[in-house]
Amino acid sequence: MARRQPSSQADDQSSQPSSSGCPRQRPGCKRKRSVAFRVEVEGDPAAEAQDPWVVESLSGLKMKLKRQRVSSVLPEHHAVFNRLLEDPIVKKFLAWDKKLEVSDKYLLSMVIAYFSRAGFFSWQYHIIHFFIALYVASDMEEDNQAPKQAIFSFLYGKKHSQRPLFHKLCFQFIRSMGWKTRVTREECEQIQAFDPDLWVWGRDRTLLP
């Protein structure tokens, strides 16, 4: 008795789409990836997740640039700072801040760093720039913002109408620095090392009783 041959209907059924919409595969056959699938993989958002690593690399580069800015603090910036320390109002302010809440050695170091970044000529720096730089430094580093308000009293007395002008000058000063207001502790220590015997570097909070 002759064996019945498989009908062509069975072959047709094996090639019919399944309920999931994908063609049924014969045993031993491998499915070929379509071009559309390869494009989808190449354009997968997961592949673009590596972009933040590039940004992280750029952030590391910025850190190196910030370290290079230490060399931009020239002797003339120290000379400007020393000149402004002799101003009677500055002396009075530093004598008032006995707890060093607004003018410890690190905040004063930041003043010199800001002078170097602002890019003004030496003769352009005046007492207002000293207090602006000190105000911005305190704003960057201190949690307690109340003590820095005393700067207004030493500059303007009871004339509160001058405060908007001061804040406008602060904005212009920060913009002249390219919005780079962060100063590392290492930069501050290098600035202090330029003239370690300067009397203001003795304003150390850790030494207060």
Score class of each variant (00 low, 15 high):
residue 60 G to I: 05
residue 46 A to W: 01
residue 18 S to V: 00
residue 76 E to N: 06
residue 57 S to N: 07
residue 205 R to W: 00
residue 195 D to G: 01
residue 186 E to H: 15
residue 12 D to M: 11
residue 91 K to A: 04
residue 123 W to T: 08
residue 54 V to D: 07
residue 161 S to G: 03
residue 82 N to K: 14
residue 98 K to H: 08
residue 75 P to W: 05
residue 65 L to N: 03
residue 114 Y to N: 07
residue 106 Y to R: 08
residue 43 G to Q: 13
residue 47 A to W: 11
residue 3 R to T: 08
residue 158 K to V: 04
residue 122 S to E: 15
residue 146 A to F: 07
residue 178 G to E: 06
residue 62 K to N: 14
residue 194 F to H: 14
residue 53 W to V: 14
residue 52 P to M: 01
residue 93 F to R: 05
residue 198 L to R: 10
residue 27 P to G: 04
residue 209 P to D: 13
residue 114 Y to H: 11
residue 106 Y to C: 04
residue 174 I to E: 11
residue 178 G to F: 05
residue 189 E to H: 12
residue 45 P to F: 01
residue 74 L to W: 01
residue 176 S to R: 15
residue 144 N to C: 09
residue 178 G to D: 06
residue 162 Q to D: 05
residue 69 R to F: 03
residue 33 R to K: 14
residue 126 H to V: 05
residue 126 H to M: 04
residue 110 M to Q: 15
residue 195 D to V: 04
residue 39 V to N: 05
residue 167 H to Q: 09
residue 152 F to I: 07
residue 112 I to K: 04
residue 34 S to A: 11
residue 51 D to M: 02
residue 151 I to D: 02
residue 180 K to H: 14
residue 162 Q to W: 01
residue 179 W to G: 05
residue 12 D to W: 09
residue 110 M to P: 01
residue 49 A to M: 13
residue 99 K to F: 00
residue 180 K to Y: 09
residue 164 P to C: 08
residue 165 L to N: 10
residue 203 R to F: 02
residue 43 G to T: 11
residue 99 K to I: 00
residue 113 A to S: 15
residue 163 R to F: 03
residue 154 F to G: 07
residue 176 S to E: 10
residue 54 V to M: 06
residue 129 H to S: 10
residue 194 F to C: 09
residue 160 H to P: 00
residue 9 Q to G: 02
residue 116 S to P: 06
residue 136 V to T: 13
residue 132 I to V: 14
residue 90 V to S: 02
residue 37 F to S: 15
residue 26 R to S: 10
residue 186 E to G: 04
residue 171 F to R: 10
residue 27 P to D: 07
residue 111 V to M: 01
residue 13 Q to P: 00
residue 141 E to P: 00
residue 39 V to K: 12
residue 147 P to T: 02
residue 27 P to E: 09
residue 45 P to A: 03
residue 130 F to W: 05
residue 203 R to C: 03
residue 185 R to T: 11
residue 83 R to N: 06
residue 187 E to G: 02
residue 173 F to Y: 15
residue 165 L to I: 07
residue 195 D to M: 06
residue 125 Y to E: 03
residue 152 F to G: 07
residue 209 P to T: 12
residue 108 L to G: 11
residue 14 S to D: 01
residue 23 P to N: 03
residue 133 A to V: 02
residue 83 R to A: 06
residue 88 P to C: 09
residue 8 S to R: 13
residue 182 R to H: 12
residue 118 A to S: 14
residue 150 A to Y: 13
residue 127 I to D: 02
residue 71 S to V: 07
residue 44 D to A: 11
residue 135 Y to S: 07
residue 105 K to Q: 15
residue 138 S to Y: 05
residue 207 L to K: 15
residue 129 H to W: 07
residue 179 W to L: 14
residue 26 R to Q: 13
residue 32 K to I: 06
residue 116 S to A: 15
residue 71 S to E: 13
residue 148 K to Y: 02
residue 46 A to R: 13
residue 9 Q to H: 10
residue 203 R to M: 02
residue 42 E to T: 04
residue 115 F to M: 08
residue 45 P to W: 03
residue 34 S to Q: 12
residue 171 F to K: 12
residue 125 Y to H: 04
residue 64 K to S: 09
residue 15 S to V: 11
residue 115 F to P: 00
residue 183 V to D: 10
residue 52 P to Q: 03
residue 139 D to I: 05
residue 119 G to N: 03
